[in-house]
Design a protein around this nucleic acid. Sequence first.
DNA 1: TCTAACCTGATC
DNA 2: GATCAGGTTAGA
Length: 285
Amino acid sequence: MPELPEVELVARELRPSVLRRHVLRVLESREDVFLTGASTRLNDVEGCRFESLRRRGKLLIFELSDDLVLTVHLRMTGRLETTEPDHPRQPHTHLILELSDGRQLRFADTRRFGRMQLLRRDDLSNDPFLLRLGPEPSELDVESLSQRLRPRIGSLKGALLDQSLVAGLGNIYVDEILHRAGLHPLLSAGRLRPHERALLASTMSSVIEEAIAAGGSTISDYRQVNGSAGRYQLEHRVFGREGKKCHGCEGEIRKLVVTGRGTHLCPNCQPRRRGRMSGERRRQR
DNA sequence: TCTAACCTGATC
DNA sequence: GATCAGGTTAGA
């Protein structure tokens, strides 16, 4: 479900209600959702204190006392919330931690793709997901973006969805970024012109920034921790707007499938000037 | 690099 | 009943 902006907002909203609290007990957990490392057991979390909460890409990282780390990936439908203990639990609640102030930290996830992991701090640096993760969009300058795009064979959309190229973008924001930059999702990632790469780099960070400022995008599941919906979906120019008029040119927003993902674009504003992908697979140089 | 698979629920 | 969904990844 959530991409970088939504995960960032979850982190910001959760901090005041979890930091400096201790975990008293694990009240409930599903072992296929809450995993442990080689040297951790679930109950190790009991008695620990939440020291910090940060985000890397779409991953939430809670640092605990006793050298423990709790990572949470919400994937498509995961949600985290803190509630009073008597608050009715959402369906598909897979983990409940009782906190020292009497409240509870709960993780619910309809589709059960989401994962929580309890690790030793030392093992976090060997976590395969974190090891592969590319830079944050805010730290990706034109130089570095160019270097990363140049060797790529496939589509621009596929490249931007690849978390090792840049961390945190997902289907919504890639479509929105490409529309703003006037780039067709099927352009060959390795063959952008210099001015297009520059535009892509700046568009990327401004779209992400604006989405955070607007409280993220609420399409169906995502809510801010306080329960209110985001507002960035109102700013979407292409995502979820197939058949509607493009704000830029009065043309019609179309939907196609790129690397298996529904992809929204305006064919006028995002021209596909270089022929079909199949003709672009020729080796570079 | 791409597809299918992992799950459940909403919508067609 | 079939298809689709904001993500990731094993396997081709």
